[in-house]
């Protein structure tokens, strides 16, 4: 039985439909991503999972519980990191962890969590004085302090600098390795690709696809992309005549050539024949970004 089972979820606020029809199942021990642009209905969906909202239609089951009816039981077993939820500015990190630990019958050890999340030096620091990354880590710690079986993390790394983001990703993998099932809401492709075992792509309140990141990428037409800066101005026709080339675009001094297998070989031969040196030459494969565009017809931002 899946840990989380969402079926035909529908939720509207007044006339505005936030979630049209969402279904997915999360298996034990995986990091399951909910990926989509802002306003796609991701947060509303997980809020129904957390029991913070009542669905208008459809069913949600978490650990075999009804999030609304069995709310108290659910709160003991599900950890939640909310998007943009703070603590009082003058509350110290250690105090917050101790307090939230006291809400549970069998909490995790707050001291160890603080260690694990790299907050040992901030134990006596007030929440208001923490950096964005540190606040986010406190937020994760609070989601885990009840020693939950499932954790829902909403927009975990929004507003973090790249280093803090990478640190946070490592941390989440560590949590998963401890056996916690994780639902990760995100609109960062890189994050979804790096962390998620499987993910549901949501757009305009509907699930567009559920697959592994690699599975999603393989759904789009395999396309190669070659970028370079020619040492001398280059006539497009030289490239367009090649059978492997589908398209050529120029932006600034950079040329981007897209096409099928063998693209790189064909392009470099033509350049060599015409004594053009290609600087900053790069080859790109289809990514989750491309998969997303193919699935939804637009980019995520």
């Amino acid at each position: 039985m899946p840990v989380i089972d969402v079926r035909n979820l529908h939720k509207r606020y007044g006339a505005k439909v936030a979630v049209e029809d969402v279904s997915f199942a999360v298996e034990e021990g995986e990091i399951f991503g909910v990926l989509g642009p802002n306003g796609a209905g991701k947060t509303t969906t997980v809020e129904c999972v957390e029991g913070l909202r009542t669905p208008d239609r459809g069913t949600v089951s978490v650990l075999g519980l009804d999030p609304r009816r069995d709310r108290t039981e659910l709160t003991r077993r599900l950890g939640v990191q909310l998007q943009a939820s703070e603590l009082p500015d003058k509350m110290k990190v250690g105090e917050a962890l101790e307090l939230y630990a006291s809400f549970y019958d069998r909490p995790a050890d707050p001291g160890r969590l603080i260690e694990e999340l790299g907050l040992a030096d901030q134990h006596d620091t007030r929440f208001g004085r923490l950096s964005g990354g540190q606040k986010q880590r406190v937020s994760i710690a609070l989601a885990l302090v009840g020693d939950p079986e499932v954790a829902v993390l909403d927009e975990l790394t929004t507003g973090l600098d790249p280093q803090a983001r990478r640190d946070t990703w490592r941390l989440i993998e560590g949590v998963r390795d401890r056996g916690v099932t994780i639902v990760l809401v995100t609109h960062f492709m890189e994050e979804a690709e790096r962390l998620c075992d499987r993910l549901a792509v949501i757009d305009a309140g509907r699930v567009v696809a559920v697959d592994t990141p690699a599975g999603l990428v393989s759904r789009v037409a395999p396309e190669q992309r070659v970028r370079f800066r020619p040492s001398v101005p280059l006539d497009d026709h030289l490239l367009k005549e090649l059978p492997e080339v589908r398209n050529v675009t120029k932006t600034g001094g950079q040329v981007v050539v897209t096409g099928t297998d063998g693209l790189l070989q064909a392009v470099t031969s033509v350049l060599a024949r015409n004594h053009v040196i290609a600087a900053d030459l790069r080859v790109e494969q289809s990514s989750l970004d491309d998969a997303f565009v193919a699935l939804t017809g637009r980019t995520i931002d």
Binding site: E50, L52, T72, T75, R76, L78, G79, V80, L82, A84, S85, E86, L87, P88, Y100, F103, Y104, D105, L142, G146
Partner: peptide, 17 residues
């Protein structure tokens, strides 16, 4: 009102308390 604005009340709503 500050606790509500900051989401402190909401966060507590996700705990058993």
């Amino acid at each position: 009102a500050g606790y509500r604005e900051k989401g402190v009340l909401r966060r507590m709503a996700t705990t058993p308390v």
